[in-house]
């Protein structure tokens, strides 16, 4: 039941990405090309998603907890540092070069288009490179999750390992 519901949530996300145009690099790049061929549509994607999520989260996070877990897993890291800003800046350069962001590219894999598969392979390669740095270099070069919560072989924005997780704060 839990996995079926999760699959359906992914399906809603994938359908939303498909309808919105986020899976289409030409449309995405045109949004950023204000000086040339501008397509303002993506502001409406972001706006629609934000309004629904803002009010939806206010309702959901006011509940005692999620249906199929003990607690809400919310990111605890609050520091605005070089890793956050530098990483985001590098992400933007890659997004501007390719026209794909992860949330747009993952559903687009379902079309089987070779360009999407090439991008997705490179995306996973970039993540693997970050993980290689995590395990072979000093803390100052490690990604935030890895550096702060050892041992934390999780990706970004996931929960902390159970043994070091803070007390649930669902108030």
């Amino acid at each position: 039941m839990r996995l079926l519901l999760t699959y359906l949530i992914g399906l809603i996300f994938g359908l939303g990405i498909s309808i919105s145009g986020m899976a289409n690099p030409e449309k995405v790049l045109n949004f950023f090309d204000i000086a040339g061929t501008w397509d303002p549509s993506l502001a409406f994607v972001m706006g629609g998603a934000l309004v629904v999520t803002f009010f939806g989260y206010r309702w959901v996070l006011g509940r005692p907890g999620p249906s199929f877990d003990q607690m809400f897993h919310l990111p605890q890291n609050r520091s605005i540092d070089l890793k956050l800003l530098g990483g985001s800046a590098v992400f933007g350069v890659g997004w501007g070069m390719s026209g794909f962001c992860p949330g747009g590219a993952l559903p687009a894999i379902g079309t089987g288009r070779s360009e999407v598969l090439i991008f997705a392979a490179a995306l996973i390669g970039g993540m693997a490179l970050a993980r290689f740095i995590n395990t072979h270099m000093s803390v100052r070069f490690q990604t935030p999750n890895y550096a702060e919560h050892k041992p934390a072989p999780h990706g970004p924005l996931t929960h902390l390992p159970r043994d070091v997780a803070p007390e649930a704060d669902n108030t």
Binding site: L84, S98, F119
Partner: peptide, 18 residues
Amino acid sequence: LVIGGLLVGLGVSYGSGC
């Protein structure tokens, strides 16, 4: 696409999200 994908993968790992 390849360089862009690598940069996105690296960037989102350090930036903790996309």
